[in-house]
Each structure stands twice: as C-alpha cells, then as structure tokens.
C-alpha cells in the first residue's frame, strides 16, 4: 500500500469532511472554452505582478525594478498610440481577434458586430390560444458575443459564441458541452426581428451540428427585458428576489444589493438607496389604510434622531447620521408593528 492511499481512520474521516466542506465551491457554473479563451488572451501585464509559478508555492516576485517596468510600458503605449493614429480610420484597431487556435474546429465570423436589436434577453412567447404549447418555456440571452439558452438560467444551459456571417445570418458555435452537444458544434441561423423589436424569429439555415440546440433555438422569441409593472405595493409570490435600488453599505465605491427570500404574503413598501421596507399583509394596523403606511414609516427615525441630538458633544451644525443598517432596522420594525412609529 502506498502512502497516497494509506490513511488512518481520522485522516479518512477528515478527507470526507474536507470534500463535503469544499463541495460548495464546485457548484459554480463554468464555461471551459470561455475560461480557456480568457486565459489565452490574458497578458502578463494584466496580472497584479509577475511571479514564479511551479518553482515553489511562495515564490518571490521576479520584477525587481517596477519603475523600469512602468517606463517600458509607457514607452510601448506611446508607440502603439502613434501607430494607431497613423492607421486609416476604417481599420479595425482593438477589435476582437480570433484566438490562436481558431482553426481548431471553430468558425470565426468576418461579418462584424452583433446587431443591437438582438442583444437582449428573450423568452418563449406565452400561448394565447387554447391547445398545446408548441415551444414550451425557455430563455435565450444574446450578448455581443455569446448566446445562452436553456429552461432555467444557469442550470445546464447551452452556451455558444455567436458571430455574424451575413446581415441576417448568425453563426453559433458551442462553447459548453451539454447533452447531444460538444464544444465546437456550429450552426447557422437566419434571424428576423418584428413587432417594433420585440419578437425575434430564428430559423436554421442548414442542419445544426447540435440537434438539441436547433430544437431549442428555432422559432419565435419575445423580449423579456421590457419594462415591468412596479412591484411596490403588490404582494410578492414566494421566492428569492434581489433589491433593485437599496444599497445596504451605502458606499458608492462598493455598490451592493440585498438578496432575500420571501414566503407567501409579503409586500414591498419601499426600495430606494437608503431604505428597503417589506411588510406582511397582516401587519397593517387596524384603522389605518394600508396605502398610507409607507409614508409614515420614516417617522420611526425621529425618536432615535432626537436621542442622538441630546447626547453630549452634539454639534448643531452637523447633520445627525443614523447608520444605514440601524435605519433599516428601525423602519423594518415599524413596518412590522406600526405602533412603533411613535416610539
């Protein structure tokens, strides 16, 4: 028995616990081809520093004179800038270029950028007439360079790069292996956008190498990023949501959002950068109309603000600031029990 597989009972148990502990890190969705392309396009200058790798885990930086490196970089940038300015205006400077192995079964488009009309999230149309739904549910995210397709976002979805072959033709090349698809499978689709840009119809021009993608992609799609009705004041369906404006840290340099999970019967009363208010349908105090409650909630801050002003050292020329999380907590408690508004 070698050292590699000889473990004491504790080590065996520990190894199992480590695997369970690190399991969460493996659930991230990864696009190997995209990672590969990113790695190949990353230059050493993009890195935080140049380091030894493989010659020791804790190697020292190999760049000794940083100022010299900066001077060389500035010189190179200057040379490139002069070269760019000297080129004809219609030359493609800085555009995406095919990767070093673009010939390895992958097709590269010569046709230019993906039209803006296509760069939206799309979903299958809901049937408006009784009868079987010919397309079912699904989502399609089109960006300037890629396409993601599936039933639930991020879960076993199909990813491909897209490129323009002709003005009305897209070349689609798989970058993720899924059922019936391998990396590099490509197909060409004719596209047309109608209905003021809200309906996209895709038709395969020839048989897609990935038949599952052809079945999922062909047909009509409608834009899913059109403005929705405001959610404030409506009872939310149970589920997980993300705030749209509330910034719990209140730091413009570190914008953040709050993700929250609601059971049934909750409403949003306010979602702005300073406050986020939820209340349950049963929370509204008897005798007070629910519609006016959100307007009264900020009054819950009055008591603590006045208390601050009574502290020793209070400067009347400076505003009294209550910490964002405390403010949120006070308003949330007031929303839960309106009697707390008056302190």
């Amino acid at each position: 028995m070698t050292e590699r597989d000889s473990m004491e009972p504790f080590e065996t148990r520990f190894a199992e616990r480590v695997r369970a502990y690190t399991q969460v890190a493996t659930t991230r969705d990864l696009d190997p081809l995209q990672v590969s392309r990113d790695a190949m396009s990353a230059r050493p200058a993009d890195r935080r520093s140049l380091r030894h790798v493989g010659s020791g885990l804790f190697g020292r930086p190999i760049v000794g004179d940083r100022w010299a490196a900066v001077a060389v970089a500035a010189l190179l940038i200057g040379v490139v800038a002069i070269a760019v300015q000297g080129r004809p205006s219609n030359s493609r400077v800085g555009g995406s270029t095919p990767g070093p192995s673009a010939t390895a079964g992958l097709t590269v488009s010569p046709g230019g950028a993906i039209p803006d009309a296509l760069r939206h999230p799309w979903q299958r149309p809901s049937p408006v007439a009784p009868g079987p739904d010919p397309y079912g549910s699904g989502f399609l995210d089109l960006t300037g360079e890629s396409l993601e397709l599936g039933h639930v976002s991020g879960v076993t979805s199909s990813r491909s790069t897209i490129a323009v072959a002709d003005p009305d033709t897209l070349l689609v090349t798989a970058t993720r292996e899924t059922q019936e698809c391998v990396i590099g499978d490509s197909g060409a689709y004719h596209w047309i956008v109608e209905g003021s840009g809200t309906v996209l119809t895709l038709s395969p021009i020839s048989s897609d190498a990935c038949s599952a993608r052809e079945r999922a992609l062909a047909g009509p799609w409608v834009r899913s990023d059109l403005p929705a009705h405001p959610v404030v004041g409506t009872t939310m369906a149970p589920g997980t949501y993300t705030t749209s404006a509330f910034d719990p840290l209140g730091d413009p340099g570190l914008p953040s959002r709050l993700r929250y999970t609601l059971p049934a019967g909750w409403q949003i009363d306010g979602d702005d950068p300073g406050t986020f208010v939820l209340h349950h349908d049963t929370d509204v105090a008897p005798g007070k109309p629910p519609a006016v409650m959100p307007a009264l909630l900020p009054a819950a801050l009055a008591g603590p603000t006045l208390a601050r002003m009574e502290r020793r050292g209070y400067d009347p020329f400076l505003p009294v600031e209550i910490a964002p999380w405390r403010r949120q907590w006070l308003i949330w408690r007031a929303a839960r029990n309106p009697d707390r508004i008056a302190g």
Partner: peptide, 29 residues
C-alpha cells in the same frame, strides 16, 4: 501550441480540483 479547445478540456477536467483547493485555502467563495 495554442489549441483553445485542448486547454478547455484541461479546464473542464480540473475545474473541480482547482475550485476546491482555492476555497479550502481562502475560505471564501
């Protein structure tokens, strides 16, 4: 030699191991 598909296969084969060790060392996803 610059074959991005070959490197993608290496990525796919070793992604789990790298994610696990990086999480184990950093303790942060």
């Amino acid at each position: 030699a610059g074959d991005e598909v070959a490197f993608a296969r290496i990525v796919a084969a070793h992604h789990d191991d790298l994610a696990r060790i990086a999480f184990f060392v950093s303790g942060d996803l």
